[in-house]
Computed example of a mutant assay.
Amino acid sequence: MTSPLLTTPGAVSAESTDAGVAAHYGRPAHEGRAIERSGAWVDRSNRGVVRVSGPDRLGWLNDLTSQLTLGLVPGAGTEALVLDTRGHLRHHLSLVDDGEAVWIHTEPGDGPALAAFLDSMRFMLRVEVADLSGSRSVLTVLGPERDKAVAAAVERIGGVPVRAAEGESDLFVPSERLVEAAEALTEAGASPAGLWAYEAHRIAGHRVRPGLDTDERTIPHEVDWVGRAVHLEKGCYPGQETVARVHNLGRPPRRLVMLHLDGTVERLPEAGSAVEFDGRTVGRVGSSARHHELGPIALGLVKRAVPVDTDLTADGIAAGQEVVVAPDTGANAQIDLRRRPR
């Protein structure tokens, strides 16, 4: 798909996974500052959208995902994971309940697969699953002044579910009214920002993106999903054994770091390229971007044993590491060794 918002003055299309929406609108640094200091909207209409309705929806999702969704307050956004039996990621869900249905957005192209999986797990429960990727589009609004803009867009469009979480609001807008919603946001003081600025903001916030910052071996503890997308005090779900075992007895084999890259190098590292220490490959690079204040940054997964105070190279670029997941994450069991009285 190609977003109609690419006709916005200055819009330049993103590439690869995010092709079809704007990478920037001509002023990436200004857009980054608007995200953090005032208000900005980001076209994320390439995201997959799934709607789950029916009276059993929250309990059903609670049984299928890593998140505690029972009693989820309408309007309160959260994240959840669908894991396989070994604790590896199948789907990442950004979701909100509006009192009548759960609205989910997921990675570009993943909406149909997520909907098909959920539909296959309905059995006799009172739930309905619909893939709305072609009829609903996500607009994300950020910044300290975002509430005014969100209210203006909801008033203009009407019936727009809003997911509020981690300093941003996601609007599930009817696709045919996407331009109208963006205009309402702009008139209310939010300026357009592209994915370059949004991704830089996300990386600086240490939030991983599935498929870029994860691979087929990733488990939740490695990438700081515990607490954010994984609830440790809920009932059984696929993959829980791995989560519980790492949390209580072991430590994950890898850990997430943020990489501060050498700013004199003109290029950014490729996702999936090697992170090296002392000439040896010790991990992989995930997503990267140029932040308006921090300069070039990236996320990476490195082996747990890599010293936390050492410099690394990412795709041949010198990089200092900022610890996100500590090497001693996990192993939280308190085991008292009892000795026989002599």
Score class of each variant (00 low, 15 high):
Met1Cys: 10
Thr2Trp: 10
Pro4Cys: 05
Ala19Phe: 11
Ala22Arg: 04
Ala23His: 12
His24Thr: 12
Tyr25Ile: 10
Gly26Ala: 01
His30Ser: 14
Glu31Gln: 15
Val42Gln: 06
Asp43Gln: 10
Asp43Met: 11
Asp43Arg: 13
Arg47Glu: 09
Gly54Tyr: 00
Pro55Tyr: 05
Trp60Gln: 00
Leu61Lys: 01
Asn62Ser: 12
Thr65Gly: 04
Leu70Asn: 13
Pro74Val: 01
Ala76Val: 15
Gly77Leu: 08
Glu79Trp: 14
Arg86Cys: 13
Gly87Ser: 01
His88Gly: 10
Val96Asp: 08
Asp97Leu: 10
Gly99Met: 04
Ala101Leu: 09
Ile104Asp: 04
Gly111Leu: 00
Gly111Phe: 02
Leu114Thr: 05
Ser120Tyr: 11
Phe123Ala: 07
Met124His: 14
Leu125Ile: 07
Val127Ser: 00
Glu128Ala: 05
Asp131Pro: 03
Asp131Ser: 02
Ser135Lys: 03
Val138Trp: 03
Val138Asp: 03
Leu142Arg: 07
Gly143Ile: 00
Glu145Gly: 05
Arg146Trp: 04
Arg146Met: 01
Arg146Phe: 00
Ala153Arg: 01
Gly159Tyr: 01
Val160Asn: 00
Pro161Lys: 07
Val162Leu: 09
Ala165His: 15
Ala165Arg: 15
Gly167His: 09
Gly167Cys: 10
Phe172Val: 06
Val173Gly: 02
Glu176Phe: 11
Val179Met: 05
Glu183Leu: 00
Ala184Pro: 01
Ala190Lys: 05
Ser191Phe: 08
Ala197Arg: 05
Tyr198Arg: 14
Asp213Gln: 12
Asp213Asn: 11
Thr214His: 09
Thr218Pro: 01
Thr218Cys: 05
Pro220Glu: 02
Glu222Ala: 05
Asp224Ile: 08
Trp225Gln: 10
Val226Asn: 00
Gly227Pro: 05
Val230His: 04
Glu241Phe: 00
Val243Gln: 01
Arg245Phe: 09
Asn248Leu: 10
Leu249Gly: 06
Gly250Ser: 14
Pro252Asp: 04
Leu259Gln: 03
His260Tyr: 04
Leu261His: 06
Asp262Ser: 02
Asp262Glu: 02
Glu266Pro: 02
Leu268Pro: 06
Glu270Gln: 15
Ala274Trp: 00
Ala274His: 08
Phe277Met: 08
Asp278Ser: 12
Thr281His: 07
Gly283Trp: 07
Arg284Phe: 12
Val285Thr: 02
Val285Ser: 04
Ser287Arg: 08
Ser288Thr: 03
His292Thr: 11
Glu293Ser: 14
Glu293Arg: 15
Leu294His: 11
Gly295Ser: 02
Ile297Val: 15
Ile297Asp: 10
Leu301Phe: 07
Leu301Arg: 03
Val302Phe: 07
Val302Ser: 01
Pro307Cys: 12
Val308Tyr: 06
Ala314Ile: 13
Gly316Leu: 12
Ala318Pro: 12
Gly320Ile: 08
Glu322Asp: 14
Val325Leu: 11
Ala326Asn: 13
Gly330Thr: 11
Ala331Thr: 07
Ala333Gln: 06
Ile335Arg: 08
Ile335Met: 07
Pro341Val: 13
Arg342Pro: 15
